[in-house]
């Protein structure tokens, strides 16, 4: 049980994908202009990352490892994740149309998103078991969702601010993201035994 808590806490706060590891910055900056779309994106990422963590674990341990092809894991994961997302999209469209209409537009965007791929690779790096892998994928995605939704709130405030001309638009966004990341670095000192 403490293991579950540890993985959740680490993935969401101390090693937050966006603020500590800088994975998935592109959707983080691209889809965070409204809290509602940010939440949609976060949910889609959560869904895909949990599923792909499971799938890539299987591919790595039952297909790549027996043949000694561990060095090709990145390529294999891209292939598997891309197909998986396509599959999920088709499945949702048929059986869960409500979920499809809310997540549908985000799914193709994250086919081989670096956060999704990153979760799969970190799992292998840490030598996680199957359960831990899925949990880690899920928790990291929750951290991603939290970060993107929080930042969407920051951006909503920023729309009405008047930064100096040189900082208008994207630069001020990056500075705000940097400040948020610095705030999150406060968690990095926490150690659990």
């Amino acid at each position: 049980m403490s293991n579950v808590f540890l993985i959740m806490f680490t993935a969401i706060l101390t090693e937050n994908f966006i603020f500590a590891k800088f994975y998935g910055i592109c959707p983080f900056l691209g889809v965070s202009d409204k809290p509602s779309t940010a939440l949609g994106m976060g949910m889609a990422v959560t869904f895909v990352m949990t599923m792909s963590s499971a799938a890539t674990y299987a591919v790595y341990h039952y297909l790549l490892a027996p043949f000694g092809l561990e060095y090709l894991k990145t390529v294999a994961f891209i292939l598997v994740i891309a197909s998986l997302v396509q599959f999920i999209e088709m499945f949702l469209q048929k059986y869960v149309p409500a979920l499809y209409s809310s997540l549908g537009i985000y799914l193709p965007l994250i086919t081989t998103n670096c956060a999704v791929l990153g979760a799969a690779l970190v799992n292998i790096q840490n030598g996680n078991s199957f359960g831990d892998s899925v949990l880690f994928g899920f928790a990291s995605a929750l951290g991603f969702t939290m970060a993107i939704v929080v930042f969407a709130g920051v951006r909503a405030r920023m729309q009405f601010s008047e930064p100096p001309k040189a900082f208008k638009g994207f630069p001020i966004l990056l500075i705000a993201a940097g400040l948020a990341a610095m705030a999150f670095s406060g968690f990095s000192g926490m150690k659990f035994n």
Binding site: V59, L63, F67, L69, L72, L79, S83
Partner: peptide
């Protein structure tokens, strides 16, 4: 040969699945 075969198999599998 073995990586080529493994990847071909994986690709075909995914293709069939989709």
């Amino acid at each position: 040969l073995s990586p080529a075969l493994v990847f071909a198999a994986l690709g075909i599998l995914m293709g069939i699945l989709l």
